[in-house]
Each structure stands twice: as structure tokens, then as C-alpha cells.
Design a protein around this nucleic acid. Structure first.
Length: 209
DNA sequence: ACATTAAGTGATT
DNA sequence: AATCACTTAATGT
């Protein structure tokens, strides 16, 4: 029957009354691994709260080139989606399920309402926005100031952190796409990281030491 | 056994 | 760091 959102939302500093409202007005959505949640040009109508699993958020151009921005995991909200709905903005992002994911979707209209009604919710949204913004700036820095080998390492560590596992199930080709570089470059740099004993390489799999 | 996909590498720009 | 060209290794049919 009803999915229990309590365990995930507890500890975020939201009052019980608000959690009850979220529980009452939202609905559970399952997104299968590799299925997109939103793409550039679409309009977000619901505010997504990640319950389980992780979402990969990236930027994508018209030719389908993409670049990884950050992950959203349990308890995270994509505050960026608010500007995309309450404003006139279309989505500037693409979000894809990195693993099978459970989301609690709340109508944007209520999000607007709750921001006025609950201090805790306003803080939650602003904090969440701040966190995404910080991660975004980190990514900007990595692209602007870091060499590809440092970016690769950052990518691997981000992935390790979000998944809670040092085993990364991706091909060099997939990693290259997310960093917007070529497979050959990724293979070479991974090989170098392996010689430095920072990773171990297998087919379809990279293990971070 | 053969085809396909993933990964490794030298050479060139 | 990107691209080409080629090799080797692993996996699917």
C-alpha cells in the first residue's frame, strides 16, 4: 500500500505536520535503471525527492553530447527543478536513473505553498539549492582547472561516494561519454591510475582502491 | 567457430 | 587530449 517516506525524511529537520502533508499529497514513482526522468526542454510539474537509488544529473547538448554534473541519492531533492516549474524556465538538465530509483513526487504548486507556510521547508529547499549549486561549482572548477586525469579521479570518487561501493560497473566508453571525452583517453588514464595503484581494472568494471 | 564488444597501445596531429 | 589504426581479450550466438 502506501510507501513509508518517514524513514528517509526524518532527520532533515522537517516538522511532523509537514511530513504528513508530503506523505498525503505525493505519489511514489519508480524509475528503472537508465530511464530518463527529465530532459532539456521539458517542464517539471512535480518536485522529486529521492527515496532510494541514485539519479545522475547532467548537461546535454543538441548533438547528444553530455557531461556529468552530480548525483542525487536518498534524502536529496532536486531543488533546481523548482525554478524550472515556478519560473518560465525549461529544464536545463537531464536526469537519468543511475540505478533503479524510487522517487516521491510532490506537485510543484504545493511546494510553493509550503515554502511560505513552513520555515523548515523553506530552509530545506534553500539548503538543497545551495548543495546543488556547490556541486555544480565543483564541476565547473574541474572542467576549467583540472586535467583530464584529475577529473577522472574526481568522477570515480563521486561515483564511489554516491553508490557506497568501490566497484564501478561501467565501461570505459560510458565513462568517456559522461566526461565528454574519448574512450581511448579514458582507457589510457585508467591504465595510468592502475599503475599508480589507485584503481584496478576489469572488463565492464573499475574498482577504486 | 564466428561475430561482436571491450580494452590496450603506438603513432600522428 | 583527440583521432586513427590496429591488436588482443572476453563474451555472446
Amino acid at each position: 500500500m502506501a510507501y513509508e517516506i518517514g524513514p528517509v525524511l526524518t532527520g532533515l529537520g522537517l516538522e511532523a505536520e509537514l511530513i504528513a502533508e508530503i506523505e498525503q499529497n505525493g505519489k511514489l514513482v519508480k524509475v528503472r535503471e537508465d530511464m530518463p526522468l527529465i530532459s532539456p526542454g521539458m517542464r517539471a510539474t512535480s518536485f522529486p525527492l529521492v527515496m532510494e537509488g541514485t539519479l545522475r544529473v547532467m548537461r546535454e547538448d543538441a548533438e547528444g553530447n553530455e557531461i556529468f554534473l552530480y548525483y542525487l541519492t536518498g534524502g536529496d531533492a532536486c531543488a533546481m527543478s523548482i525554478s524550472c516549474c515556478l519560473g518560465t524556465q525549461m529544464s536545463q538538465f537531464k536526469a537519468v536513473a543511475e540505478t533503479d530509483t524510487l522517487l516521491w513526487m510532490v506537485p510543484m504548486k504545493l511546494v510553493d505553498e509550503w515554502m511560505g507556510k513552513y520555515r523548515s521547508f523553506r530552509k530545506f529547499v534553500i539548503d538543497s539549492y545551495q548543495e546543488r549549486f556547490d556541486e555544480l561549482m565543483q564541476t565547473v572548477d574541474s572542467i576549467a582547472f583540472m586535467n583530464m586525469d584529475e577529473r577522472l579521479m574526481k568522477y570515480l570518487l563521486d561515483k564511489k561516494q554516491s553508490s557506497g561501493s568501490y566497484v564501478i560497473h561501467k565501461t570505459h566508453e560510458q565513462i568517456a561519454r559522461e566526461l565528454n571525452t574519448s574512450r581511448v583517453v579514458v582507457s589510457r588514464l585508467l591504465k595510468k591510475l592502475e599503475r599508480e595503484e589507485k584503481v584496478e581494472l576489469f572488463r565492464n568494471r573499475v574498482e577504486v582502491m
